[in-house]
Design a binder for these strands. Structure first.
Lengths: 254, 254
DNA sequence: TCGCACGGGTGACAATTGTCAATTCTTGTG
DNA sequence: CACAAGAATTGACAATTGTCACCCGTGCGA
């Protein structure tokens, strides 16, 4: 792996507080790999051998069952994924494929497990990270069970707008079909849901969303900190189920 | 709290490996409380001050939004819940109410947080516990997104049967309306789903489920270790017979 | 003992969501 | 630049799921 990656990784909440020595050891054991687009790099059910760190690109976490498939999360740099499976030394519950060419750093799970046994600070960070992940999925599940598809779309738009600094307009960070799947609906239904929201303060132009009437939108979305975050003291939504983050690409697009 | 509770608690994976001394200290800080049935003991959004340990009774974890409500889990003894919220010192994401009269032991969250800072074994147990919780909710979310309501009911019946030692017959551990809500459907829909399964190897008599044709049932349920567990190396005592909790892990944390 | 509240079941109907097919739009590539 | 492949949209239709109204039966308390 590149030396210039280390400071980036070190900034992650998971690695921020551990000793410099242990961090170095972990980094020694790690190696980087660049995957082309559309490659299924992790297959659900296989043993979890590596903690993955996204450095560049985009990865989709998804699950399949009987020919059906659903997007569980989309991961953007810089963040980690599949921490829980590594800890448990258990099979992956989700598959992962690159959406675009991606550079990923992989830390052997056994080194990971050895490290939080000997570095209490790292153990603490891991606890916090897992608690964040857990709460993140609980939020997702709440959304699926308590909101209709139209409300989920509205709430997603509210969240993204907030992440963009309460912007009245932003660019969807990923393909609509992925977003639809993540939100638990078909692409067709997603398309119709957005169209239906045009009478409630949302306009859409290609990948750009424009909020024309925030009040009306919120009346539909009913944004709720217990479902939409943010979580009090976390400035990071957690590794395994991130909201698609605001990134540089979007800033340029404004 | 009663002295005879301690050995029970000590058997939990979360408390099994910590030092006797630290365990005692935690227990000193704890106190027990008995709640009557139908009492909302935790309200979502409030600060998480206590880790709860179920000693006797039944508690429902649920979430509400805009007048709608959904059951997220049902907790049976002996187990803990709302670990994640305590760790993060963040608001509860779920509410809790007693289904029946329940005796619950409460450990102040600050004592908890102090303890895994000074007991590495406890920190390790917490990590494992959180990873289990996380994977449990991910499974739940996968079920909601990948299976139809009928399939969820069928899969639930398969799981319970397995937990009961592959019994051909078992008693539903909780009211059907709670089960329906947990599985993400209305009571009416649940009732119809079970009825529809009668042509696929399931008979029902009041609260008793009888599997008349396991093959046919599995053809519908498509049981999958990545959604229905068990998790590879878990030796959790969730397999004890008649009063099987309906979801062995899931309950932890919030 | 009588109600009566409540869980549970059922039918009719409505709303939501998914499926299929056709078309347009976008994007990447030769 | 043109073309091909795949994403997005749309309409018609089907399946699933929810809602409402009503019924039955049980269990608990006045």
């Amino acid at each position: 792996m590149r030396d210039e990656d280390k400071p980036e990784i070190r900034k992650l909440p998971l690695f921020r507080d551990m000793s410099a020595e242990n961090f170095e050891t972990l980094m020694q054991a790690a190696y980087a790999h660049t995957f082309p687009a559309q490659l299924e790099m992790i297959r659900q059910g296989e043993p979890a051998d590596f903690l993955h760190i996204m450095m560049e690109g985009t990865v989709e976490l998804f699950s399949g069952w009987r020919g059906r498939e659903t997007t569980m999360a989309v991961v953007r740099p810089v963040s980690t994924f599949i921490l829980a499976a590594c800890i448990k030394d258990a099979p992956y519950l989700m598959s992962a494929r690159t959406v675009e060419k991606s550079r990923i750093i992989m830390i052997p799970a056994k080194d990971l497990r050895a490290t939080f046994r000997l570095d209490p600070e790292f153990a603490m960070s891991t606890i916090t990270e897992l608690a964040n992940c857990y709460r993140s999925v609980v939020r997702h599940a709440k959304g699926l069970k308590l909101r209709t598809s139209r409300e989920r779309v509205a709430a997603y738009i509210c969240r993204q707008s907030r992440l963009a600094g309460n912007a009245a307009s932003f660019i969807l960070p990923i393909e609509k079909r992925l977003l639809a799947s993540y939100l638990g609906m078909t692409p067709e239904n997603f398309s119709r849901a957005i169209k239906a929201l045009q009478s409630d303060g949302v306009a859409i132009d290609g990948m750009r969303i424009i909020i024309t009437d925030p009040k009306a939108l919120e009346a539909i979305a009913g944004p709720d900190s217990l479902m939409d975050g943010p979580d009090g003291n976390s400035e990071f939504p957690g590794a395994d189920f991130p909201e698609v983050p605001w990134d540089a690409k979007q800033r340029e697009a404004m």
